[in-house]
């Protein structure tokens, strides 16, 4: 049975996610130190994975889940690399 967007719940859900993205972006802009910005980027990567899965649901195509899978595997390498750089390793 294909999924169709109707009713109030998808709108509330997307609104909550967008508020989360905007709050993370505000912390990225004002964050006093560099680790604050790295934390904001980490939160944005996880929210992006969820947005990819939800878009796969809204478009009703299973192949779109592969993008989220690749992102879930690879997205943390950027954050770990930057954290190692801050620490003085790398």
């Amino acid at each position: 049975m294909p999924y169709e967007i109707h009713g109030l719940m998808p709108f509330i859900y997307v609104g909550l996610i967008m508020l989360g993205v905007v709050f993370s972006l505000i912390r990225f802009l004002v964050g006093p130190t560099a680790p604050d910005r790295v934390v904001a980027t980490d939160i944005l990567t996880t929210i992006t994975t969820v947005v990819l899965v939800v878009l796969a649901l809204f478009f009703d195509r299973q192949i779109y889940l592969d993008v989220a899978l690749v992102y879930a595997v690879l997205a943390f390498t950027a954050v770990v690399a930057i954290a190692r750089f801050l620490e003085g390793g790398l």
Binding site: P35, D42, V53, L65, A72, V79, A83, L86, E87
Partner: peptide, 26 residues
């Protein structure tokens, strides 16, 4: 979906630990 959940569950604490350690060391 369960595979994506497992990957998120394994990779997210790693990045959080790296950030916390880097913040303390800097």
């Amino acid at each position: 979906c369960l595979l994506i959940i497992i990957f998120i569950l394994f990779t997210n604490p790693v990045s959080a630990h790296a950030i916390g350690r880097a913040a303390y060391r800097t």
